[in-house]
Amino acid sequence: MLKIKNLRANIDGKEILKGINLEVKPGEVHAIMGPNGSGKSTLASVLAGRDEYEVTGGTVEFAGKDLLEMAPEERAREGIFLAFQYPVEIPGVSTTNFLKTAVNEIRQHRGLEPLDAVAFLNLMKEKSKLVEIDQSLLKRSLNEGFSGGEKKRNEIFQMAMLEPKLSILDETDSGLDIDALRIVANGVTKLKSRENATIVVTHYQRLLNYIVPDFVHVLYNGKIVKSGGKELALELEEKGYDWIKSAVKEGSEI
């Protein structure tokens, strides 16, 4: 589904991604871990098409298409979803209205008829149960005055509504208490299918207790320096990132 080859990217002339290689297949959950500043969020942003980042090398293929050629909205319509680390507020625009536009934009791209108001509201009802989000929240301005937990839940709710092929969760666990974390993670798990894939970007292992990854990758200094199964996350939890850092410094194989 997603093939990243030797991806390099800069921001303000500074190289952040220094040759990323990653392949994600349908049905898989990949966790990308790493210390602060290693390039995790940059990778998520570059995949979503944020234009502050300049891609300087490499290729990204998504469902057989050149992802880097596409505008951010085309990527979204093709089925890439980014759950933001810091979801933005849009005053005066209700989540409901926002999502109605988004859902129908994506449906149009897939050659489907737009949903009418009734069908849309039914879909909202169904999906809001998945992430245990309060319906009244959806009538309010998008993310405005939402708590940190409500914002993250709203991200996962949007993911449920848009039914993406590939979801990228960027530090979705940050700022969540343990109950909210469980609800959000359960939502993600329920949305998992054999057709879609998930990339979980996280600093801590605890989210991975709920969203069990098939693969764990350690990103450090712009490169994936170690990959493994879910047990790698536990190892990182126990030992921290320092052993990885020093191993990279010494230039030895990890």
Partner: peptide, 18 residues
Amino acid sequence: QIFYCNQRGLDTEQAVAM
């Protein structure tokens, strides 16, 4: 804000209008 809307499938004109 614009990028957020883009990421949900809205083009920039739609995002600004919204």
